[in-house]
Computed example of a mutant assay.
Amino acid sequence: MSAIVVHAYGGPDVLSFEPLAVRQPGPGEVLVANRAVGVNYIDTYVRSGVYKVPQFPFVPGDEAAGEVEAVGEGVDEFVPGDRVTYTNHLGAYAERTVVPAKSVLKLPGAIGFETAAGSLLKGLTAEYLLHRTFRVEPGHTVLIHAAAGGVGLILTQWAKHLGATVIGTAGSPEKVALVRANGADHAIDYSREDFVARVREITEGRGVDVVYDGVGKATFPASLDALKPLGLFVSFGNASGVIEAFDILLLSRKGSLFVTRPTLGTFTSQRDVLLAQAENLFGVIESGKVRIAVNARYPLKDAAQAHRALESRTTTGATILLP
């Protein structure tokens, strides 16, 4: 088979398209023939060394969808031919991937491979943010940074479906229009406007209940000033760089604020939680309340080009690779 292989941390050029032997699944494992592979910001963190891997060389990628080709000893939940998807397991940038069965999910018939590959990691992230980190309910006001991105578009639609007043930020007039078209009550171009001042104006000085921030360094600590007293700042990504260490007394001075830095793996490590999250996600997609926009497709061999586009902040919605 062919795969993208990384031999050292670096820029997109370290993504090398190479032949690899196909490994058969061992006990508790499933061999998946990938039909569509998701591209996520976390892939760039792993490639560049922001997030470390146990050893080199390695195959990047955290999300794909395809068909079961073989199962290992002790696997009785899946059989060859099953349509499946998986995430939170390195190695997806390949024509075939061996995955622990505990990380694999059956696909509902109404959800295609491209939709699954473009939504699972991002959608499960939105699920834990909206339902398990801060439970969004009618009456809440939420601020979503990078609302035109892959996670952002899902968060925006889903938060609106849950009854929240949604304020989304984006970095261009075109992206702002996209955020509005996906249900945001208010959209702010933070390349041209002071988003804190606009949030204060929109909320009549109260601030928001929660900030969902996948941007990182560029929007911190200003996001704290957009929160109401006792509000929650949720940092779940580092698109502009990692937030540096800060004085914890900032939180008391700005209104006894709460801050958290969750990660998807904490939730999906428990099979029952993963299944509940997936059921919630697949249900809201099948209902049409959340639409998955796969806006860019690249052949697997062009993974470096996909990374350049993602890091340039020019993409919207989901990007996928096609093996």
Rank of each mutant, 00 (worst) to 15 (best):
S2P: 07
V5A: 12
Y9Q: 12
D13N: 15
L15Q: 08
L15S: 08
L15M: 12
A21K: 14
A21Y: 09
V22Q: 15
G26Q: 11
G26K: 10
P27T: 12
P27G: 15
P27F: 12
E29C: 11
L31E: 05
V32H: 06
V32F: 08
A33T: 01
R35L: 07
V39G: 01
D43G: 05
D43P: 02
D43M: 04
V53H: 11
G61K: 14
A65N: 09
G74E: 04
V75I: 11
D76N: 14
V79Y: 05
P80G: 14
G81I: 01
R83K: 08
V84D: 08
Y86C: 10
T87R: 13
N88Q: 11
H89Y: 15
Y93N: 00
E95N: 08
R96H: 12
T97R: 09
V98W: 12
L105D: 05
L105E: 06
L107N: 02
L107K: 02
A110T: 05
I111P: 00
T115K: 03
K122S: 13
T125E: 04
A126V: 01
E127C: 14
Y128M: 13
L129E: 03
L130D: 00
F134G: 00
E137D: 04
H140G: 00
H140R: 00
V142A: 00
A147R: 00
G150A: 05
L153N: 00
I154L: 07
I154V: 05
V166E: 01
G168E: 02
G168P: 01
T169F: 10
S172P: 05
E174K: 10
A177V: 02
L178Q: 04
N182Y: 05
D185R: 00
S191H: 10
R192M: 10
R192T: 05
E193I: 06
A197N: 07
V199L: 09
E201S: 06
V210I: 02
V215H: 07
A218Y: 14
A218V: 06
F220K: 04
A222Q: 13
A226R: 08
K228C: 09
L230P: 02
S240W: 03
G241C: 08
V242T: 12
I243C: 10
E244Y: 11
A245N: 01
D247Y: 13
L249S: 14
R253Q: 15
R253D: 09
R253S: 14
G255D: 06
F258L: 09
G265H: 13
L274Q: 11
L274N: 06
L274M: 14
N280T: 15
N280Y: 15
S287I: 00
G288Y: 06
I292W: 10
I292P: 13
A296S: 15
P299S: 11
D302V: 11
A309Q: 15
S312M: 04
R313S: 06
R313M: 03
T316D: 08
I320Q: 06
L322F: 03
P323V: 04
